[in-house]
Amino acid sequence: MDKNDTNKRLRERLIDAQDGLLSRDELERLEKEVRAHDPQLWKDHQWMMRQSGEGVPGLFAEMRAEQPDGEAIRRFHQRREAEGGSQMALEHLVWQLFRRYVLTVGLVLIVLLTGLQMGSSEDVSASSRDEMTRYLGTEQQQMPELNHWLYEDL
């Protein structure tokens, strides 16, 4: 077992000793081992044992008795409700904006697509007219009434 492992094991055992978990014999054996390994460790352990008669936890007796003021929990719940409320309001706003956005974009898209569709229909009409003109050739010029009737229909 290397020195680090021994150090760790002895510290663990000293904490057990401070918690009163060792028998008298175990404590004596531990003392011998610790003194042989590092005498300062035993001195530190003794200091820890002496504090306020209860070891180091005894030092904290007063701090342990401290309580937050009686209103602290109420203030926390107030903050939670306020933040939860504002978060919900924000989510609602985002949802509203999203819905409006989707509606607006949807409407704009419908208008644009309809416009494009109409534009392409007009192109098709124009090119059909040209083809008809080429097909009918001079006859077309001789039949203005028929032309008029045809184009109106297209």
Binding site: N7, K8, R9, R11, E12, L14, I15, D16, H45
Partner: peptide, 8 residues
């Protein structure tokens, strides 16, 4: 064990 050693 590590907790105890670190506590010490």
């Amino acid at each position: 064990g590590t907790v105890k050693s670190r506590l010490f």
